[in-house]
């Protein structure tokens, strides 16, 4: 560590490193990219959760955010494009004691992987899904995403985007998620808290994190650097916990509604399966994954 002579005798490390694969840092993300900030918040949420981290697994798809799995010191799976959720579904159902987190980007989860999200939420699969929304495809060079708001230029929308974007909290709410929140890379404390809540809750929990992509979204649209985008989040965000998700639509550089929108209880897929088979099959049913798993709490 640095020039602090008076503490040279102390073995002092960034506490967040405990949750990361230190042999893989520095990461690949660009200067000013917000994914690292979201990962930082997640690492702290993990450490604050009190969970047995041997029982927490993270699954990512493909893309810039897809690299997240590789930096977390957990059982981590970097899967195929769009398929983190079905992989995570298999992992969770196979080993119900795991607390399974899907950590991926907006294009991965809602374009190529959209169908899987809808069904995982409908089934209330017991997963925490963190979606880093940077409005673009970063890894491939800044193409239009299902979350790009109307207006900004992307390489495949060279004259500005004319496609309607998804309002992700509304989608998650409509599909039945038990927890829905949106924060930005500006709201680090709230985000870390939401991630902590998400880790400790059951059912399909969804957290959208708005993050700057300075290289392929901000600069292309003359919005400055990463930090300028975070200043925009600071200026234009309105915290509305419990807001109607219908009203959480995002527009180009417009107002951003953030907060915890949904927090409700629904039986998970495994709980439903166990309850139903116990009733339907009686003693011939072999119960599976006691209580639908304890999500790493022991």
């Amino acid at each position: 560590m640095n020039e602090h002579c008076e503490y040279k005798d102390l073995d002092i490390q960034n506490p967040v490193l405990k949750a990361l694969r230190q042999d893989r840092i520095p990461h690949i993300w660009c200067p000013g990219c917000g994914i690292g900030t979201s990962l930082n918040c997640f690492a702290r949420a993990l450490m604050d959760s009190g969970l047995n981290l041997d029982k927490v697994a993270v699954v990512s798809g493909i893309g810039c955010t897809g690299r997240t799995a590789g930096y977390l010191n957990l059982d981590s799976f970097h899967t195929t494009h769009g398929r983190a959720i079905p992989f995570a579904t298999g992992l969770k159902l196979s080993n119900p004691e795991l607390n399974v987190v899907v950590y991926s980007g907006d294009g991965d989860l809602f374009a190529i992987g959209g169908n899987h999200f809808f069904h995982a939420a409908r089934r209330n699969m017991d997963l925490l899904i963190v979606c880093v929304n940077n409005y673009t495809y970063g890894m491939t060079g800044g193409q239009v995403a299902p979350t790009t708001p109307l207006g900004p230029t992307q390489t495949t929308m060279p004259y500005g985007n004319f496609e309607q974007s998804f309002n992700l909290p509304f989608v998650a709410d409509a599909c039945g998620a038990t927890y829905v929140a949106r924060w930005t890379a500006y709201h680090v404390r709230q985000l870390a808290k939401a991630m902590n809540e998400g880790l400790l809750k059951k059912g399909l929990r969804f957290i959208e994190v708005l993050c700057p992509c300075p290289t392929l979204y901000s600069r292309r649209n003359k919005l400055g650097d990463g930090v300028d985008q975070i200043k925009y989040y600071k200026e234009k965000s309105v915290i509305k916990n419990g807001a109607d998700t219908k009203e959480a639509e995002l527009t180009f550089q417009g107002e951003i509604i953030v907060g915890k929108f949904i927090d409700r209880e629904r039986p998970t897929w495994l709980d439903s399966m166990n309850k139903h088979f116990s009733a339907a099959l009686g003693d011939s049913f072999v119960p599976y994954g006691a209580n639908g798993g304890d999500n790493g709490k022991n």
Binding site: Y7, N14, V16, H27, G36, N40
Partner: peptide
């Protein structure tokens, strides 16, 4: 430690002297 929470590169963190 707000700097520590914001840092996307895990390059900085803050500590209270009391804790040190």
């Amino acid at each position: 430690d707000l700097c520590g929470l914001y840092c996307p590169d895990f390059a900085i963190f803050g500590v209270r002297y009391k804790d040190l």
